[in-house]
Nucleic acid binder design. Sequence first.
RNA 1: GCCGAUGUAGCUCAGGGGUAGAGCGCUUCCUUGGUAAGGAAGAGGUCAUGGGUUCAAUUCCCAUCAUUGGCUCCA
Length: 647
Amino acid sequence: MIKITLPDQSVREYPEGITGYEIAKDISPRLAKEVLSITVNDQLWDITRPITSDANINLHKWEDDEGKHAFWHSSAHLLAEALQELYPGTKFGIGPAIENGFYYDVEPGNGAVITEADLPKIEKKMLELARQKNEYNRREVPKNEALSFFNHDPYKVELIGELEDGTISFYQQGEFTDLCRGPHLPNTEPIKAIKVLSLAGAYWRGDEKRKQLTRIYGITFPKQKMLEEYLIQLEEAQKRDHRKIGKELDLFTFSQKVGQGLPLWMPKGAKLRERLETFLKKVQVKYGYEPVITPHIGQKELYITSGHYAKYGADSFQPINTPAEGEEFLLKPMNCPHHCEIYKARPRSYRDLPIRFAEFGTVYRYEQSGELHGLTRVRGFTQDDAHIFCRPDQLKDEFKKVIDIIFYIFKALDFKDYIAQISLRDPENTEKYIGSDENWEKAENAIIEACSERRLNTVIEKGEAAFYGPKLDFMVKDALGRKWQLGTIQVDYNLPERFELEYIGQDNSAHRPIMIHRAPFGSMERFVAVLIEHTAGKFPLWLTPEQAVVLPISEKFNDYAKKVQKQLENSEVRAILDDRNEKIGRKIRDNELKRIPYLLIVGEKESENGEVSVRKQGEGDQGTMKIDQFASFINDQVDQMLQEIDE
RNA sequence: GCCGAUGUAGCUCAGGGGUAGAGCGCUUCCUUGGUAAGGAAGAGGUCAUGGGUUCAAUUCCCAUCAUUGGCUCCA
């Protein structure tokens, strides 16, 4: 008999060789029906695998990530089996489960090209195979046998080559056998609903120098209804896409003539962005930032000094040549070199530090064409940039203050789901980075300590640092679940070195300051994009380009409506007028769709009493108010919103 | 940059080797109204651009540009 410890620490005795499935059955028949995978002593296993000694176990159902993982991983094998049947000779790369579903990277047999039109066919074949209820059979295989089994598939051979003999396992279901660690479902029966979603090229092992395989994405569910719900949810997410809402609400546009990735802000979008900028400027004044302004171009030499030219010169917009011999300027890809020169403009004392230069600086980067994406990835964008020059003893404190600003902004905009990522350098590949080991270590520790002192939950990613220093990034997901970096704080020992920045210390000798680059929004473009998707275009009252629209019942009341609008404008309420020759129902509908927070209906009654009839977006009629009463109602709400954040 | 898809009116999209369609929007007129679409008429397109095949190309083929789903990259 062996002792099995469940997550609640209760212990049960079972005969040696009992499986997860049998334990589940012993606990409850219902659990047995739902269990998908099991953790045995911190290792994920199949529920059909015999347990031969005392163990801590945890059974996983669909509701658990581990359960879904096994389900989708098994589905990936099913996809592979379908492809093997439909495209004989197909070579298989990797086929993992992902956050939503799974994919398989393949090289279709006989040079076949799989297109979107083939997806339904693949889906049908998968369903057909799933209904056969084939078992997933695990088998451990010696390395030489594994190699000879896959001798026709160079990708599998490469993967096997990296594994240690004795740790290699195969899974076979139906006619398909795959190299795989597992775990898998006992059989294909639970896979009831299947959607093959999309198709993409993906470099083998993520290396752009290697062959590009065909990646097929799919998702499966134990119930048809769950699939339907998922697809509806996907559609809903697409409705929040900032590119779509941006067009609907006239916030921004692009022009082929102006150029790829160069956003054009329309009046309403510009208003929105301006308010965000004003908001941050106010915060920055409180935190001791000083505004600076620098030009959009700089001599090439400036970027040679900063090191950016060596690193990115080839992938940048090419230098601007002027009539004077030998003059070359670059569109600025970064604001920091300019700010360094401001720092250098006069001698600095240790008493002056920290110095914080802030600028909404527009920069230009030649992003690869395939990377451009709405407002989230563009070639010309404005950073809410600032550079803090400080003494080593001030670094951690300054870093913490920047975290506080980011917290403040995220709170103001109700961003709750963010990931704070600390990016360190790749310890195996230190030649990619510039700067001394000692400085790197100091900077990395300062970040880690600052985060822990601010009790920030972080994930640490090695190898994700910028080439000049480690950083803390705040990532937020868009409507389709893609992660984007917004706020960023970066420690830099390198630029002060390259620009020979100094301050005179207490000891009357020169010292090198440390620089912090920081941008709480990241870029205005990207931030607004994510904001649009999070709010579905229903911006908070303090931020929205138009807070109210006045709707006269008929043309007879246009004059009164105009007066209302003017009076509101004078009271600093952003109000517009809809005096189109339309019935009131129509005006209400159109302006609701424009997501204007308050609709003010004015007709005979209102004009006689100096009132407006207030209708709140999405909520309906709120009764009447005097004009100035409504103005203070709006202004009070805005003040309250901004004050609450202050506390 | 790479692989796949897409490009038709301001927007959303249908169509298809023989001179181009819908709905919404826009303009004008009628209507003057009370909380999510009033009615009529009209304007608007080199079917992304450039080549090729064909008696004939918006439609088929090639290239380019742009958009798009991924991959790679991201100071």
